[in-house]
Design a protein around this nucleic acid. Structure first.
Lengths: 131, 131
DNA sequence: CGGTATCCCTCGGGATACTG
DNA sequence: CAGTATCCCGAGGGATACCG
């Protein structure tokens, strides 16, 4: 289990929101779940760049924070579905805007990152927004 | 200089946006600059929880990515001002929405974090949104 | 099928002191 | 006043193998 050692302010909305949204794949997870991708395996296949472990950690966090809800069907093989809660719904337009920002400024950003020596670009991993 | 070893997809707007927005203090910096806080020292005072080094790193990244612009007055003592570029402007409504999300769900989120054993809460660091 | 355990490592970020 | 150099650290996340 991850442990945060450095305190952050729970009196700042922006900071708490950051805490909710800032995991490498959280926005992607929410985006896909919102489009109807509910099963764990499906989500993993949609985000092949992320390991199962990390997706689970982030899904657990989102669940713990009341952003998603998890439904477990007790059967064999086990079946699990994720849903977005009403609170989580409020994040969807934000995530869409963030994606749109990236799309609108696609060429500018690509130039920035391609010319950035720190960033080893991989153009072939996934095309999330192209769903 | 930080170096990213793990490639990310430059063909996904959401991913590139994440790369732009996901630094611990980037949203705060943009927020404050947008409110007219232009000087480095002022920004540092507004975000006392962050070290000067990190703020500079993140400001440099934002500048490099075309989100902010830096104006240096050659004089002594040196004077520097930061401005938001037209591209960066597009992020402001998003940042506001993220802050609003946190404010709207303030009590829910506080409960979540206060009850989270991983999170050492500090209620007294700063009140960013209260500016 | 879905979730964990373990291991390992990176990289983002904190603290401090120094330079122009 | 603004920025950098060093040093250090640990949270977060990648890879893999193992349970239910």
């Amino acid at each position: 289990m991850y442990e945060k050692k450095i305190p952050f302010s729970v009196s700042c909305g922006l900071e708490m929101s950051r805490e909710v949204l800032f995991g490498k794949w959280k926005m992607h997870l929410l985006y896909y779940i919102s489009t109807g991708v509910k099963r764990s395996g499906e989500l993993q296949r949609k985000i092949p760049a992320a390991s199962r472990r990390v997706l689970n950690i982030q899904l657990n966090e989102l669940e713990h924070q009341g952003i998603v809800r998890k439904k477990v069907y007790i059967q064999l093989p086990v079946k699990v579905e994720y849903f977005i809660t009403p609170i989580g719904e409020q994040l969807l337009p934000i995530i869409n805007l963030i994606g749109e920002f990236g799309d609108k400024n696609f060429h500018h950003l690509q130039q920035v990152f391609i010319n950035d020596p720190r960033v080893p670009v991989d153009d072939s991993i996934l095309q999330v927004r192209a769903v």
